[in-house]
Structures are given as structure tokens and as C-alpha cells.
Design a protein around this nucleic acid. Structure first.
Lengths: 65, 65
DNA sequence: AACAAAAGTAATTTATATATTGCATTCATG
DNA sequence: CATGAATGCAATATATAAATTACTTTTGTT
């Protein structure tokens, strides 16, 4: 479940805590998604994408290592 | 949770049953996703997108009614 | 080095995505 | 219209996403 959440979040100088709060989940959930160990729901993916001003494809589609 | 799964699936003349089998879920799950009553996981969204030869954005991003 | 903020990690609990079963309804074709 | 395939729909069960709590490790700043 590789994705571009971490790299995008860091570019915006946002902390896991801030992103988590803004999308309505806990810091741990964001951490696990960034690490690729969670399979998030579509609604959460959309919330994260909007918060990071990206689309679903940019964050979650065919992400290379 | 509006999306373009149904319209895309019908265009390919695929049944819910066939799509469900190919992505490894039940027919009911596909039905509920098409109806917008489910919040599917990312991995399932990706499987459906690949099966329908679309991207995440095309099926699930900012879908108008 | 010392301190604080951020991030990693792990156990347990809770909410919900998905499975399973079964029956009703719609729709196409003979 | 009758038959079967596809879909709708609903109840209950199971798997897993996400919450909660708590502790450790990393990172940056003075």
C-alpha cells in the first residue's frame, strides 16, 4: 500500500498531528498510512488528498518505490 | 460516496457478479459501492479501477451527481 | 548535552467494511 | 407470459480499519 502521503505532507511542513486533526483521525492512523501498513477507506483518502491539495491519483495511484 | 463505477461497468457489459469475482469480493459489495452506500477500502478501489481500466480519479474523484 | 516536539511502535478496544445467506424484484429473451 | 439471469435489499456474522492509551525513539534547537 505504497503512497505519496508522507513526502507530500513534509513538503507542506505539516506535522502528522496537524494532518490527522484536519482530516479527523488520530496521529497513529496517519503514521500507519504513511508507512504503508494500513489500507485506508476511500473517504479518508479523499480527505487527505483535499487537505494536501492533491488528487487521489497523485497520492495513491501506481506509486513507485 | 458518489462514484462512476456503475456507469463504467455497464459500458463494458460486465455484470456485478463478474466484476465482483475479478476483484475478489461479493456481488453485494459491488452493489452497495455502486449505490454509494459503502465507503470501500483503497485496495478495493484500486482493484476495481484496474479491472475497469480506469484510474482512481476517473472513478472516485469529485464525481458530480 | 539537555530539553521538547515529532514520529515510531505496540496492545487492546471499537466501529465499520465485507461476507454470507436468503428472498424479492426487474429485465431480457424464447 | 414464462423462464432465467441480473440486480435490489435486508439480517446476521466476521474481518479489519481506526481509536485509544502509553511508551520509546528520533530529530531539531538552545
Amino acid at each position: 500500500m505504497r503512497n505519496n502521503v508522507k513526502i507530500t505532507r513534509v513538503k507542506t511542513s505539516m506535522t502528522q498531528q496537524q494532518l490527522a486533526k484536519n482530516v479527523g483521525v488520530t496521529r497513529q492512523t496517519i503514521g500507519l498510512i504513511e508507512k504503508g501498513e494500513y489500507n485506508p477507506t476511500l473517504s479518508l483518502c479523499i480527505a487527505i488528498a483535499k487537505e494536501l491539495e492533491k488528487t487521489l491519483d497523485e497520492l495513491f495511484w501506481e506509486v513507485e518505490d
